[in-house]
Amino acid sequence: MQELRKEKMSTLLEIKNLHAEVEGKQILKGLNLTVRAGEVHAIMGPNGAGKSTLAAVLSGKEGYTVTAGTALFDGADLFALEADERAKEGLFLAFQYPVEIPGVSNINFLRTAINEIRAYRKQEPVSAKDFMALVKEKSKLVELKDNLASRSVNEGFSGGEKKRNEIFQMAMLEPKLAILDETDSGLDIDALRIVASGVNKLKNAGNAIVVITHYQRLLDYIIPDFVHVLADGRIVKTGDKSLALELEEKGYDWINTAQKV
């Protein structure tokens, strides 16, 4: 009994029967997923299955309409919150395709973000000194070059630098739940190791990570507790880390076939 309640309390994300469409097209078709504090979930699945759509719906991107289902984030109704409020509550999305924002400096906007989040949580704004110390510490974590932190957001960054910048921002914001959408794609082998070890250092018993990936390779570094297969808008199979190995070997066809039977 005691045990059960504890487990329930530490549920960070609970998605039930999620249906969502974009531009009139049904993409998510009854998706269920529960993520508890301390867990790492991997979501794999074929191109166009709806993985990024799930991330977009959860983080509140406009144009995505939830037609059925619910999502509780740390007990709160996620879909009742604006995108920025979700971030303020501790949700983070590392974008598959981070946008370039010329003229907006990486660290200035992060400082604005941190102070808005702190105000939301009724905390004092961070001092310039503390903030710079934080930038220094966190950019080290993902070995982000000094000048990248102060440049315009992602402008002229290489593909790999953009991905590192996403994790740098995650480190700065210390979210409760981070969704990493193909953070591994575009990273060279060394960068993959650095970014993965950064993520591992940020992981603790109180937070959780959902990694969306196509490659088992990332999961050698960030070891998942669960591996899900998302196909045609649903989680069609869930297993442990060995499922990723199996998928690497056999692809997705066998799962679909198995379902049809």
Partner: peptide, 20 residues
């Protein structure tokens, strides 16, 4: 949306972009 996803309100995000 990118700025919003980092916790900045939409109003403020727009102003940041216009200023940039």
């Amino acid at each position: 949306f990118y700025l919003q996803a980092r916790g900045i309100s939409k109003e403020k995000a727009k102003k940041l972009l216009v200023a940039a």
